[in-house]
Write a protein that binds this DNA or RNA. Structure first.
Length: 492
RNA sequence: GGUUCCGUGGCCGAGUGGCUAGGCAGUGCUCUGCAAAAGCAUCUACAUCAGUUCGAAUCUGAUCGGAACCUCCA
């Protein structure tokens, strides 16, 4: 393995790790497919957005000026592509008996509060499909005028067969049209108005009772789902931009269609690096709402779900995800979550210790080497599990200070900065103990209690000392005795 | 059926030819009034079979098992 001194990204398009070279440094364009806001996001969705949160954070750390665009799909995501295809949001609105835009607002709010809990940084721009109807109509017109779209009965379809004459439809997902053709699945047997089964709607005629619909050169309708990402990425990041991310399950057809649309409209393959995050599984199968094996974030935190033995904090979950490679599936399990919970505590405790350590004259810890290792692993396609392993190696060193290791003031500061940068800024973890009040009173009270307890200890009144510790434990406060002092902390 | 990927110790999870992952759990010891934390030491591995090689978790082939996608999906 060659020394990795610069960022390498696994590009789904070429199926290789490539050196990351932005199109217009120091600027980087990052587009991530956001949620369709027709229901609550579940933990699998969170994992995907988390992956790109770390990508964004690390690119920023490297000094790039990143414009991060993550859309909200608030119209046009049909249940299927057939003539009766119904908009997911409309359907939900009918079920909940409220306006479609109320659905959109409700679940957008929910999405924001969820990703906020997991400490995801908001994108630079969060555009919505309904806010870009005009641009979508314009793109459809470009596609039609280039001969890659056709209108039938007020709907417009992308002409995949025509496109495939000159271009490689399937280059991203590794599919070949003739192989697709050989498929015998009944659902593909057609019977709808498309000329070719692989054609996809870029404008869909709306029925009379549809609420969200717009006028267009082809009549009243809604834009096709794949189109919005092409339009909004082009608008905010340009016809060609650096990184496009999304879940593995969007690779085909969604991202494949995006490429076709951009080439069809503007003749340019839009994305230099495609990144795909893998799925969260439960007992080996993909977490999805339809299978009923998904958790909502509230259920996860409260532990109120048949598959959960207890609740897990958002940072525990974040850490759990980061301990696996984003390209691998992660299987949910209580045991693994509990291991992550303890590991995270160990990491966080060491960082705290770093502030309290009394420094020595000399230093036996090679801080530069540790920093280099962490950078190297992150440069290797955002390898967070290996980075975390390096950080744990450092934890061992930190815990050995005053035993086998010593550290001077300069290194102490450097090490502290390193941990703060990597753990808080890049991995995006944070302290999440009980809400800290500005009030000094708890600290003063605890100081008082600890002093009283220490007096009992000096008098060898172990009964009282243990009673205080036990009673505090019931209040979720833990006391730890060190050689000369005692410390206290809130327990989870 | 097609395409792609995966199978590592009790659990999770890195690792692409030789040398250490890491976390959690276990065992022994040190420290401690006890406990907790921490440190030191230590035990469980590379699905199966065959091949290439001086040497294979890593490369090749076969077998078994699992997953994702194949127009709802993050």
């Amino acid at each position: 393995m060659p020394e990795i001194s610069s960022l390498h990204i696994y590009n789904s398009l070429t199926r290789k790790k490539e050196v990351f070279a932005p199109l217009n440094p120091p600027f980087v364009g990052l587009y991530v497919c956001g949620p369709t806001v027709y229901s609550d996001v579940h933990l699998g969705n969170v994992r995907s957005f988390l992956t790109f949160d770390v990508v964004y954070r690390y690119l920023t750390y490297l000094g790039y000026n990143v414009r991060y665009v993550r859309n909200i799909t608030d119209v046009g995501h049909l249940l299927d592509d057939s003539d009766e295809g119904e908009d997911k949001i409309e359907k939900r609105a009918r079920l909940e008996k409220i306006e479609p835009m109320e659905i959109v607002q409700k679940y957008t709010n929910g999405f924001h509060s969820t990703v906020n809990q997991f400490n995801l940084i908001p994108p630079s721009i969060e555009p919505t499909a309904t806010g870009h109807i005009l641009e979508q109509i314009e793109m459809i017109q470009r596609i039609i005028s280039n001969g890659y779209g056709y209108e039938i009965n007020g709907s417009v379809y992308f002409d995949v067969k025509k496109y495939a004459e000159k271009h490689n439809y399937g280059e991203l997902s590794g599919r070949k049209l003739d192989e697709l053709l050989e498929q015998t699945r009944e659902e593909l047997a057609g019977g709808d108005e498309k000329r070719f089964f692989a054609d996809f709607a870029i404008w869909k005629k709306a029925s009379d009772d549809t609420i969200m619909k717009w006028d267009s050169p082809w009549g009243i309708g809604v834009p096709g789902w794949h189109l919005e990402c092409s339009v909004m990425s082009t608008k905010y990041l340009g016809q060609e931009f650096d990184i496009h991310g999304g879940g593995m399950d969007l690779k085909f057809p969604h991202h494949e269609c995006e490429i076709a649309q951009s080439i069809g409209a503007d003749g340019i393959s839009p994305v230099k690096y495609w990144m795909h995050g893998n799925m969260l599984t439960v007992n080996g199968t993909k977490m999805s709402k339809s299978l009923g094996n998904s958790f909502l974030p509230e259920e996860l935190i409260s532990g109120d779900h048949p598959l959960l033995e207890k609740g897990y904090s958002p940072m525990t979950v974040r850490f759990f995800f980061l301990q696996a490679n984003y390209k691998s599936t992660v299987d949910f399990s209580n045991e693994a979550l509990q291991a992550a919970e303890k590991g995270l505590k160990r990491l966080m405790d060491a960082i705290k210790k770093l502030d309290e350590i009394v420094s020595s004259e000399s230093s036996s810890i090679d801080v530069d080497s540790l920093i280099k290792k962490c950078t190297k692993s992150m440069n290797d396609d955002f390898n967070t599990p290996v980075t975390i392993a390096h950080l744990f190696d450092g934890v061992k060193l930190i815990n050995s200070i005053h035993h086998f290791q010593e550290i001077n003031k300069k290194d102490q500061k450097k090490l502290r900065d390193h941990y703060h940068t990597f753990v808080f800024d890049i991995l995006g973890l944070k302290e999440e103990n009980i809400e800290t009040s500005n009030d000094e009173l708890p600290n003063e009270l605890m100081e008082l209690i600890i002093n009283l307890r220490n007096q009992s200890k000096e008098n060898k009144d172990w009964g009282t000392a243990d009673l205080i510790r036990d009673e505090l434990k019931k209040l979720n406060i833990s006391i730890k005795d060190n050689k000369d002092s005692s410390t206290w902390n809130y327990e989870e």
